[in-house]
Design a protein around this nucleic acid. Structure first.
Lengths: 221, 221
DNA sequence: CAATGTGTGAGACTAAAGTCGCAGACACCT
DNA sequence: AGGTGTCTGCGACTTTAGTCTCACACATTG
């Protein structure tokens, strides 16, 4: 692994040569085929991970098999940092939804590095602050919003300009995937879509959902 | 404010005299009568807080006035640390549920201290790790568990030995309070109580809920 | 061109949660 | 003691969400 590659990892941007060596000694590479589990909730945590390419789903599983996606980690994102600092087990499951290339950084090595290089600690603190905000919003959404409202919000988050003033979705996902992100059953997604269509917020072409009016979507929140 | 008092704050346990002075310059005291708001969500964050005595409720508010309690901070707990690290607004509302005495630590001062004293940063990281675990569990609960199950879990968390081998609640709260912690309507708490009573998990005396069987409660999860 | 699998759409049904209304219990205050 | 407000206990009702089942569209593959 090259020093320049280490620098590409968010937490490690401005470090001296010695620090980079320290990291490189604790990094290993992982290739994860689509659908494969990286680790499961509750087992002892070995490492934190950085996504180089592909997508990894971080999720919880209910006793009866339902899935709640906490987030989808894409290139540049990190996950499983928490066990580094409390020594506990993996807090959730991780599975590739697209073939993914990862770097793993062993827990103990990472912990030593954090203690040695305050700049890394500050980086983690900023990242954790963001995650905490994200989760408080997630709790808020789950406790206050209806399914349709959560779907509308999700669509807004997935929306991006398509160049000609219109809005597309970053990636078309199946209703089942959306359901487990939004925390509901597949059928509810279909009904939510119909409701949003009736409000003039979205339509469908052969590729899937098209956002007609961002304003109308926001009204549904 | 005395140096010994600063040392009582979780994050500041082993610091040198100069650091203590730095902190003391940024600390102010707050007395908060019962029911008074300390700050509200969305407004610019001035400080983080440490509870010396009393209880402070950290909560979100829905557009139509429903309340979701994120947690109740008691003596020794800290809250509103997040804005220190991302400079954003207060992520939630804070209100005294019992008359409370607090220390506030100004945002900018605290940020400088964290950068100057790595030990503080590590302390924050451990605390944040705990909070992140707490929130992932909260999301899991809200998406998978029924109201009765959430109530049972809450009772378990509030349970403590009463000395003679029985179980009491740390503090008797009203159904309304429990409802907004557990994320539901007041009436549901009453029904959950009845269900739990029928399962032989709890009973009632004149003071309120009494836990009969911890095992029966666990079965309801 | 079947043959298959996956994703979707839809309706009927069930279960869970939330809402409304009101009455009784209780504590607190003057 | 009497009055007031808060907390609680139901029961009836509505709304929302989850489940079950089936059929159809579509793409992939042999």
């Amino acid at each position: 692994m090259l020093p320049e590659q280490v620098k590409a990892i968010p937490y490690f941007q401005d470090l001296d040569a010695r620090a980079l060596d320290g990291i490189r000694a604790n990094v290993f590479e992982v290739q994860l085929p689509k659908g494969h589990m990286l680790f499961t909730e509750g087992e002892p945590a070995e490492a934190m991970y950085v996504v180089r390419s592909g997508k990894v789903k971080i999720f919880k599983l209910s006793p009866d098999g339902r899935e709640q996606v906490l987030r989808i980690a894409e290139a540049g994102d990190c996950f499983n940092e928490v066990p580094i600092f409390d020594g506990g087990p993996n807090p959730a499951n991780a599975q590739a939804v697209e073939p993914a290339a990862l770097w793993g950084i062993r827990r103990e090595g990472m912990r030593r590095l954090v203690e040695e290089y305050p700049a890394i600690a500050i980086g983690f603190l900023k990242a954790f602050a963001g995650k905490l905000r994200y989760f408080t919003r997630k709790v808020e959404d789950l406790s206050f919003r209806s399914v349709t409202s959560r779907v509308a919000k999700h669509l807004l988050e997935m929306a991006e300009d398509d160049g000609k003033g219109g809005l597309r979705l970053k990636q078309q996902s199946t209703q089942q995937e959306m359901a487990s992100v939004v925390g509901t059953a597949r059928e509810m997604i279909g009904r939510a879509f119909k409701a949003l269509e009736k409000e003039g917020a979205i339509t469908f072409d052969r590729h899937g959902v098209v956002i007609v009016s961002r304003a109308a979507l926001i009204r549904m929140l």
